[in-house]
Structures are given as structure tokens and as C-alpha cells.
Amino acid sequence: MRDLSLHLLDIAQNSIAAQATKIDVHLEINPKLDYLALIISDNGKGMNAEFLQQITSPFTTTRTTRKVGLGLPLLMQNAERTGGYLEITSSVGKGTTLRAVFHPNHIDCPPMGDIAGVAAQLICSFPNISFSFSFKTDTSEFSITTLEIAQALEGIPINDTSVFPLVKQVIESSLEELKFPV
């Protein structure tokens, strides 16, 4: 993956495949503390301890179209390269929480990428899933949810192609205001 936004897009697919109806994404960066965390939690079907243990193996996957699953191994590799780590907790029937910690000052830390575009794509592609995105820097915070957008749109379908560019703009300008590094 070229950047963190693509990891987010990729890992969110795991939650979607786990039939989550609610996905919370939290992205926090504090360059002073050399700390960057991507936290994704869902209310999907969860995993048992045995599956959880082998989840970062490239040869573990639930898909039937091929025998390898690289989403989590790639994320773990990128996090560990910067001296960070990946940690996943899960309980069957309740959901899964993933926490990837990076050290952003490390030269191998991938760039943020198009976070606004990814968030907008996820929100607008899955109208039945309630997303909540929160972005935090050392000084301020911004959050946006599927529900808030749906309320602002008053009945206009959130997955209409004319909605996507607007949602993306809202998130983009809010991140700019936040001085969120990109």
C-alpha cells in the first residue's frame, strides 16, 4: 500500500465482510510525541482466539477466491517498519478493534494519502453502514458521521453520485482547517 489512506480503505473491507453495521475510525497524529494511531472498531461478527492468533499470517484468509490475504500483514509490516505495532482484539458476536501505531517521524512511515477521499468513498458506498470518522491532532479534533451527513441531506440518497464530491469537499476542508498533515 502506498499510503495510510489505502490501508484504511483496505482494512475497512474486513469490517464490512464481517457484516458490521457500525464502523468507527479514529485517526490521531501527534508529531511532537512521534505518535500516529489508526484505530478501527466495528460491531461485526468478531473472531475466536484461535483465528485471531493467526490473523496476521499471509496464508490466513476467509475469502474463497484465492488462498492468501495480505491486508493485515501489509499493515503490520508498515507499522513495524517505523518501530510501531499492530494490535487486534476481538470477541465473537461483539466485534473487532484494530489499532495500528506508527512513528510518523521515522523515514519509513508512509504518507497520509487522500484520507478525505477514502472516508467519503466509504460513507457514500455503504449507505447501510453507520460510519463515524474522527481525526485528532495535538491541538484540535474533527469528527463526521454517516448519520450527520444523512440528516443534512434530508432524504437525498447518500450513495447518489452527486453527493460524493460534496462529502469529500466537506471532509477535505475540515481536515485543512484542522491542519491535519497530509
Partner: peptide
């Protein structure tokens, strides 16, 4: 440029007619 949810709300009428 749409900058906030409030802007988005204001856009919804033109969005509706477009759709």
C-alpha cells in the same frame, strides 16, 4: 466549495433539483 455540513445542508435544494 462546500466547507461544512451546514454548507451541505444549504446545497440540498439545488442537489434535489439536479437529481
Amino acid at each position: 466549495k462546500v466547507k461544512s455540513l451546514a454548507d451541505l445542508k444549504m446545497m440540498k435544494d439545488s442537489l434535489k433539483s439536479k437529481i
